[in-house]
């Protein structure tokens, strides 16, 4: 009896590992084969049966993608845009969130509801007039076009307000009596107490900006301002005889976020689930 039970348990455990491994192979396969193909020659990629393991990896495709296919420039452009948007969203959301939580001003509630309402307007619904605005500002093909429309965030404002409301009111009173105005209270007390929120929203904002596709597509059309996501579309149009470069470029484009994923796993999870948990 006992032996049978142990065998049964072992078999169940084995089955679980088998299931997990199968699922992992399916999920990871597209990325795995992208890595493999980036290390093969175009001829090897096209050959059948396919090569599933690169015995003689070739690394030239990466420098080709980086240089000839302009991935280097596109990555730089994406980095500039993303860092600027993230920093700006953090700044404006913290400022507005603080005002809604701690500063008394007339129509505060109405203004706050106005900020909340922006969450209900998808960016996709305003691209037509927004592009006209950008063109009329003379911003077509500039970083301003990529960055300025996104320097504020409704959800960021909301999340920071909620987080700041968790700071005890008496801390504000104590700081006021200690001689600290709003700015110093914000910098010395409120922000240090809300570091997890800063990290979570920072990553949320970073991911959103980095992954943008539609907007950069319609406000830029030159190499000097094109972001890496749009660059990938250009890349995919390359000829079959450069397919290894396509795969290498795709990896290069995904690399920054992979690094982020491994470095800030906990904050990333919090950032991604922030919307779900806000209720």
């Amino acid at each position: 009896m006992r032996a049978a039970g142990t065998t049964g348990r072992l078999a169940r455990k084995g089955a679980r590992y088998l299931l997990l491994t199968g699922a992992a192979i399916i999920v990871a396969f597209p990325i795995y084969i992208t890595i493999v193909n980036a290390l093969l020659t175009p001829q090897q990629i096209a050959a059948r049966p396919p090569t599933l393991f690169p015995l003689h990896p070739l690394w030239g495709s990466f420098s080709q993608a980086f240089g000839q296919a302009h991935l280097g420039i596109y990555l730089r452009n994406s980095a500039i845009m993303t860092v600027a948007i993230t920093a700006a969203q953090l700044l404006t959301s913290v400022m507005a969130g603080y005002a809604f939580a701690f500063v008394r001003f007339p129509f505060r509630r109405a203004v706050f509801i106005l900020c909340l309402a922006t969450m209900m307007v998808p960016a996709e619904a305003t691209i037509v007039p927004n592009r006209q605005t950008i063109v009329s500002f003379g911003w077509f093909n500039t970083f301003a076009a990529l960055i300025v429309p996104f320097v504020a965030s409704g959800i960021g404002t909301f999340l920071f307000r909620q987080a700041f409301l968790g700071v005890p009111r008496e801390l504000r009173d104590a700081a006021t009596l200690d001689g600290y105005g709003h700015l110093r209270f914000l910098v010395r007390i409120v922000l240090p107490l809300n570091r997890p929120m800063l990290a979570a929203f920072g990553i949320y904002s970073f991911l959103g900006a980095w992954n943008q596709y539609l907007w950069p597509l319609i406000v830029t059309d030159t190499t000097s301002t094109r972001t890496v996501q749009i660059g990938l579309k250009q890349l995919s149009a390359l000829n079959v005889d450069q397919s290894n470069v396509i795969f290498a470029g795709t990896l290069l484009a995904a690399l920054p976020i992979f690094v982020l994923l491994f470095a800030f796993q906990k904050q990333l999870v919090r950032g991604l689930t922030a919307g779900a948990l806000k209720g």
């Binding site: 005890p168 009173d173 700081a175 009596l177 200690d178 001689g179 600290y180 240090p192 107490l193």
Partner: peptide, 28 residues
């Protein structure tokens, strides 16, 4: 308030949780 030169002790104490005791005391 800062120019009235009065100090307040709160029910919750309102200590700054991220600062040491020494930093809390010297904050004003």
């Amino acid at each position: 308030p800062k120019d009235r030169d009065v100090a307040m002790v709160f029910q919750s104490y309102a200590l700054y949780p991220h600062m040491t005791v020494a930093r809390n005391i010297e904050f004003p």
